[in-house]
Nucleic acid binder design. Structure first.
Lengths: 219, 219
DNA sequence: GCGTTAACTGAACATTGATAAGTTATCGGC
DNA sequence: GCCGATAACTTATCAATGTTCAGTTAACGC
């Protein structure tokens, strides 16, 4: 089943159509990274799947790292969209926080390999490791700022929550950090140790959300 | 300062003294992994630091992965020792849980790179990724079972807590998973995103412990 | 058709983990 | 003292990797 889906006969692109080749490379790289991981996925294999030579890939991406950065940005786009949807449709600040948490966890569990790429990149070069949380002041149109944007949204929601009269046990940014850490711990546990006999997944998700909401709200 | 400390003049080992060379390799590898990370540390560099040729290293370790596994086991030994110390010196079950959490976090922050190797190995081969949480039934004398042992101890402490009459919101193993996930999220956040402007570290540690203790104890 | 140049290729490089095959030097036994 | 066995080690080499270089092909405007 896997492996055949996107082997393209290729053929040289028309003039001005290079960007479609770029998309093909991104798609193939994404699939291969998910199947085999970052290190095991070679430039040659990506090129093979697309149907071009390895050096041709360097016409579209500076190096393997740049390819990865482009993929990370794609991934974050999806999460940020989901958060936007919540902000648009949910009015109650407390409910927003819970829904944010749920969305974050679902996103991670639905895109475990993209999540790994961005939030669990402990063994790939420093430049990529930092992608998730570059300083929020960076130009958001540049690649690699998604993580900080997501966190900013959470702090924003928590600030609204406080502004709406709810008392918090810590400042909004500290609350955001604690919540994010807990949710991240949950997601990364499922992703990194899938063979571990965890308790019921839904129970753990609900439990983690409950614990943190209860923990940051002043009784 | 770094780099010179352990360059040994080497010289061939006496017969039967091979194990000391093995220790030298472990030490050099540990230093280099911490300085440069797993991928950037080459077999040749490790051999250089020890003062032997690269193939000589293969007399003592099957491959690079086996070297890493040996280091992980060393690391876990230290954490398990710290936990044993708590179980020996702290009587109150609730206090034990808190001390366990603190010990776990301190251990992670004091050994960030070892922690990365064992708990955050998202991009190194599967065999190593699974080291942290192999099935608890495995032979504990074999390399690579440290993670599961640590978790078992936490569940044990929580079971005692429940047996001592304290009511929990979830079964002990679920409580253990939630606590571990939260603490792991905290530690891995500090390790993977050291440049992020986190709130005060001690506040976050205390906050995370408070949140989880409060969260698992029935009010 | 013809020149420009975007799109692409083949050969090559340095570095990597790892192996094969041979060398050296230590040590027990005489 | 030396000799044979073998632990300890080396040099040469391998295939695979990311990447670059120098060239080739073909699409398109004129």
């Amino acid at each position: 089943m896997t492996g055949f889906s996107t082997v393209l006969p290729a053929g040289r692109k028309r003039r001005g159509e290079g960007h479609t080749r770029r998309e093909e490379i991104l798609q193939a790289a994404k699939e291969l990274f998910l199947e085999q991981g970052y290190d095991s996925t070679t430039i040659r294999r990506i090129a093979d799947r697309v149907g071009i030579s390895a050096p041709a890939l360097y016409l579209y991406f500076k190096d393997k790292e740049a390819l990865m950065l482009a993929l990370c940005d794609q991934t974050f786009g999806h999460l940020i969209e989901a958060i936007g949807e919540i902000e648009r449709t949910v009015a109650d600040p407390l409910e927003r926080v819970r829904r944010f948490g749920e969305a974050y966890v679902r996103f991670g569990l639905t895109h475990p390999d993209e999540y790994r790429l961005v939030f669990l990149a402990a063994y790939i070069p420093e430049a990529i490791r930092r992608v998730g949380h570059r300083a929020p002041t960076d130009d958001p149109t540049k690649p690699g700022v998604g993580g900080a944007l997501v966190f900013q949204r959470l702090v924003g929601i928590l600030t609204e929550l406080e502004a709406s009269g709810t008392k918090l046990n810590y400042p909004p940014d500290t609350c955001g950090e604690l919540c994010w850490m807990g949710l991240h711990g949950l997601v990364s546990a499922f992703i990194l140790k899938p063979e571990f006999p965890w308790s019921d997944r839904e129970l753990l998700i609900k439990g983690m959300l409950d614990i943190h909401l209860k923990g940051i709200l002043r009784a």
